[in-house]
Structures are given as structure tokens and as C-alpha cells.
């Protein structure tokens, strides 16, 4: 007799846990033939707010880790993902993506983790400065993470866009809540499982499934969110996000026509978009002609 397969329940990833949505709502994901593949959580405002609490709680710890440590953790995600490659390919196939594309997406995704892992302890050097001020002070500027970031993944790049968005944020020490593609949500949740077993502390990465049009207003108006990354959102929704986002002067980033699989995001600039420049001054005792001035 043929063995009965154990089907997977796809849940949210919040604060290192995999809860179902508190709302009990779901939407049915179907294949081309119309058969149900999975019942996907329709995350609510409350789920999102819980995720922000988790992300804010994780921020101090994650942002104070050394670049080297973050680098190793991102590399660890690549290692874990490599081991679960077949599962991700299968899930993409299940959602109707072609075999060649599925394999390519997964392999590209793994390589992007390795790429961003390398930046964790390098972007600071490229974008910092020691500033030659006139007075007798030592003055330097360094990037620091913006804080809690919320991103909406590309609908048609269900894996690589999620990886790029998460990696750019966390490589730079931010914590993030990402809303998966509602068309192809499954591998984002599996990615959450990979992240959960890669020494990333709970709350650093949070993954929701649901409807962008339903959640965007909550994302934009939340007063403890520092930045929104909305790469491919429709203009009217972007406007809405910026309007609501002004309530706490959110940084809102939009990346038009990004080809994720081609590697458009493979630069330090998406990391820098989620950084603030901090400048520090300290007097220097008796150097220079201008003298030390407290």
C-alpha cells in the first residue's frame, strides 16, 4: 500500500515561533488545476503588531553583534538553505513554477545569502569617514541601523526578493518583518524555518503571509516602525504608505523594476538605505593651530 504523505501546515514566523494567525483567517492556495495546495494564514493587524514587538525587542541584541558574527550567521543561513534546497524547489514546483526556474531561484537565493554575508563587516568601512574638521576635534561618521524595517516582497519573486530584502536589512543590523508574496507564499515560510535554525535570534526576522492591500495601512501607520521597503507596490498604495508613514517620519524606499534573480539588489546601497549616519566629536588635546576648545 502506498504511504500517506504528511502534509505541512504553513504558519507565520514571529519572534522565533511559528504561530497560526491569531485571527484564525486563511486563504486557500490552489494549483493550476484548482486543487488546494495549502491553507495559508491571512495575517492580521494583531499578528503584525506582535511581530513589531518581537522585532523591536530583538533590535538591541542584533544591532550590537559584531559584523563578523552577523556575517557568519548569514553564511549559516546559506548552509542551511543548501541542505533544504530540494524542499524549496519542490514547493516552487507545487506552486506552478517551472523546474528550471525553481532550481535557478533556489540556487540564486543561496548565493545571495553568501553575497550579503560578506557585506556585514565591510559596508561600514566603505561608507564611514573621518572628517577633517577645522577645530581640534576627532570627528568620525559611521553608519548605524535604522531600526525596525517592514518590507513587502515582490509578488513574482517569491524567494529571491524575500532573501534580498531580509539580507540587506539584517546584514546592516536592522530587524525586519516581511510580508511574503501572496501568490507564492510557501517557500517564504520554509525560509523562516531555515532562518530559525541558523542562529538568528528570535524576532530578528519575522515573516507574515497575507494581503498587502489589507496590511499596508497598518505597516505605514505603526509608530514603532522606522522604515518601509516597498519595492514593487502600486503607485496609489505607495502614496498611501508615504502619507501614513509621515506620522513618525518613516523612511520609505521604493525600488522600481528590480530584477531580483538577475542580482539587481547585489550592492551595498540597499544596506545603506536602511542605515543612519552618526557623527561623533571628541576634543583632541593641543593639536593644530586652532587649539583645543571644549
Amino acid at each position: 500500500m502506498e504511504r500517506i504523505e504528511v502534509l505541512k501546515t504553513y504558519k507565520l514566523y514571529i519572534g522565533g515561533q511559528f504561530p497560526r494567525t491569531e485571527s484564525g483567517r486563511y486563504y486557500a492556495l490552489t494549483n493550476k488545476q484548482g486543487a488546494t495546495i495549502a491553507n495559508v494564514c491571512l495575517a492580521s493587524r494583531k499578528d503584525f503588531r506582535n511581530a513589531v514587538v518581537a522585532a523591536r525587542g530583538a533590535f538591541a541584541g542584533w544591532s550590537s553583534r559584531s559584523g563578523y558574527n552577523r556575517s557568519q550567521i548569514l553564511y549559516r543561513i546559506a548552509e542551511m538553505m543548501e541542505g533544504r534546497k530540494q524542499q524549496l524547489v519542490d514547493e516552487l514546483l507545487l506552486q506552478g513554477i517551472s523546474k528550471s526556474s525553481a532550481t535557478k531561484q533556489v540556487e540564486t537565493g543561496i548565493d545571495h545569502w553568501v553575497y550579503f554575508a560578506g557585506w556585514c563587516d565591510k559596508y561600514q568601512q566603505v561608507f564611514s569617514a573621518v572628517n577633517p574638521v577645522q577645530s581640534s576635534h576627532f570627528n568620525f561618521s559611521v553608519p548605524e541601523p535604522t531600526g525596525v524595517v517592514v518590507a513587502i516582497a515582490s509578488q513574482d519573486s517569491p524567494l529571491v526578493s524575500v532573501i534580498d530584502l531580509i539580507a540587506a536589512a539584517i546584514a546592516g543590523g536592522n530587524t525586519i518583518i516581511v510580508l511574503a508574496s501572496s501568490k507564492y507564499p510557501l517557500c517564504a515560510i520554509t525560509l523562516g524555518e531555515i532562518i530559525a535554525t541558523s542562529d538568528v535570534s528570535g524576532g530578528v526576522v519575522n515573516i507574515l503571509t497575507g494581503k498587502p492591500e489589507e496590511l499596508l495601512g497598518q505597516f505605514a501607520s505603526h509608530m514603532d516602525v522606522n522604515a518601509l521597503v516597498l519595492p514593487e507596490i502600486a503607485n496609489d498604495l505607495l502614496t498611501k504608505a508615504k502619507l501614513e508613514g509621515a506620522n513618525n517620519v518613516k523612511r520609505v524606499h521604493h525600488y522600481k523594476n528590480t530584477n531580483w534573480e538577475r542580482g539587481d539588489f547585489l550592492q551595498p546601497y540597499p544596506i545603506m538605505d536602511l542605515q543612519e549616519i552618526k557623527t561623533t566629536w571628541h576634543p583632541i588635546e593641543q593639536i593644530g593651530s586652532s587649539g583645543s576648545k571644549y
Binding site: A129, V133, T280, P283
Partner: peptide, 24 residues
Amino acid sequence: AGVVWANTYNKFDPTSPFGGYKES
């Protein structure tokens, strides 16, 4: 905060970046 003065305060220079975090 975007600018931190240690053992000094309110110093400005054209070479020194200035600006805020959060609602600043």
C-alpha cells in the same frame, strides 16, 4: 542620535555630516 558630542557640544564643520534619526 545623528550627532553625538563627547566632552564638547554644539560644534559644526562643513566636513561633518549633520542630521537626524527617527522624527528628527
